[in-house]
Simulated scan of single mutants.
Amino acid sequence: MKPVLVPTNDVNSEHGIVVTWFVDDRDKVESGALLVEVETSKAVLEVYAPEAGIVLHLARKGQELALTEPVAMLFEGVSELQAYSDKLAAEAEARSAAPTQVRATVKAIARAEELGVDLSTFDGSRLLTVKDVEAAAAVPVTVDYSAMPAPLAAEPGVARILVIGGAGGATQVIDIFSKVPTQQAVAILDDDSGRWGGDVHGVPVVGGTDRLAELFAAGACEAAIIAIGTSVDIRARFRKICAEAGIPLANAIDPTAKIATDVEIGQGNIICAFCHLGTGVRMGDNNFLSAYNSFDHHSVVGSDNATGPSCVASGKVTLRDRIRLGTGIFLEPNVELGDGVQVASGSVIVTSVPADHAVKTKIVTTTVVPRRT
């Protein structure tokens, strides 16, 4: 019996979604046979059989799984597979017969008692929070932010920027603003309550994104910026929320970026260190360009796109909207990527890619051995 794991070096992705199975459950396969495709936030990964055997699916098409868990198991023979299947069935039966072991936070238990929510109705697969209890009770969630730190002040003439998202993207944006005397990050909003009350490089996390309109109306900021680079759909959603609330989006452009004089750039763009935009480039709104990106002359970049480091485009390349590029990608001249395209790290794009397609690369396994002396 051998587990089949999804091969990936992407440290930023913890989960993937099963896209397609190429073999049926309990099929006999040869070593090296293509078994399944799994999509992460940055790539579509092909999973091959590490050896010959009978394959047992552990995840169905469309199911999300942790990349640390096997997507399938391989067995030498039918008897071994049947014994394993019987074991799984017995464990499932035992779980269904046993009382549900509900795991919940102390606050969630107290809130359940207040609202009359029966915690035994939950499946017990994860730790329950107050938010889960209130959702079950269909109670509108109201949060008391009175204990949160206040947004920072800024010198006269310095634009005060509200940062949406408190993870790695926030550190990049705040670092850019630290080098730009006309802009200052004054507060961070993040829907992960575990970050509330903390800070990122001295900028306080003052609550969830439900405070956007409130803080803007109160005059705490002049604009916002979306510091989320892992999901183009989330970037697009927050851009819409800001537009509906009348909140302008600010650009964050690192001083090391080389931008030609006739480049046109929209609002809400993050352009990290050592990027290059050649003459005639046109860029829309709400894009996140990681370090060392280059878009050469007369290229067009739409809106709500996000890239990894070291993406290089030749002249007259077109990126439409909501495109996600991995790391180290090269695009030949005149290539066009349609809306919603995802490109895996290490790809070389020589022809255009239609909307809602993914470009994948084969994962090469690298072996680490002791250095000879």
Rank of each mutant, 00 (worst) to 15 (best):
P7K: 01
T8F: 04
T8P: 04
T8G: 06
N12Y: 13
S13N: 09
G16I: 00
I17C: 10
I17Q: 10
V19W: 04
T20M: 08
E30Q: 15
G32S: 13
A33P: 07
V36M: 06
E37M: 11
L56P: 01
H57A: 02
R60G: 14
G62S: 08
V71M: 06
M73V: 05
L74I: 09
A90I: 02
R95M: 11
R95D: 11
A98R: 14
P99M: 10
P99R: 08
R103N: 12
A112H: 12
V117Q: 02
S120Q: 14
F122M: 05
F122H: 05
L128Q: 02
L128P: 00
V130P: 00
K131F: 14
V133P: 09
A137V: 07
A138F: 08
P140F: 09
V141M: 14
D144F: 03
M148H: 12
L152K: 15
L152W: 11
P156Q: 02
R160C: 01
G165M: 08
A167I: 07
G168A: 06
G169A: 03
T171W: 00
V173S: 02
I176R: 02
I176Q: 01
P181C: 13
T182C: 06
Q183W: 06
A187V: 05
D190K: 06
D192N: 15
W196I: 05
G198Q: 09
V200N: 09
V203S: 05
V205F: 09
V205Y: 06
V206H: 03
T209C: 15
L212H: 01
E214K: 13
A217Q: 14
A217L: 05
A217E: 13
I225P: 05
A227G: 00
I228Y: 01
S231H: 11
S231E: 07
I234T: 15
R235D: 09
R237F: 13
I241M: 01
G246P: 11
P248W: 03
T261M: 07
G266N: 03
Q267I: 09
N269W: 02
I270W: 02
T279K: 10
D285W: 05
N287E: 06
F288S: 03
S299C: 10
S299A: 09
V301H: 03
V301A: 11
T307N: 03
G308R: 14
S310C: 08
T318P: 01
L319N: 00
R320Q: 12
R324K: 14
G326C: 00
F330G: 01
G340R: 13
A344T: 04
S347K: 14
S347T: 12
A355P: 10
A355C: 02
A355K: 12
D356F: 13
T367N: 10
T367H: 12
R372K: 13
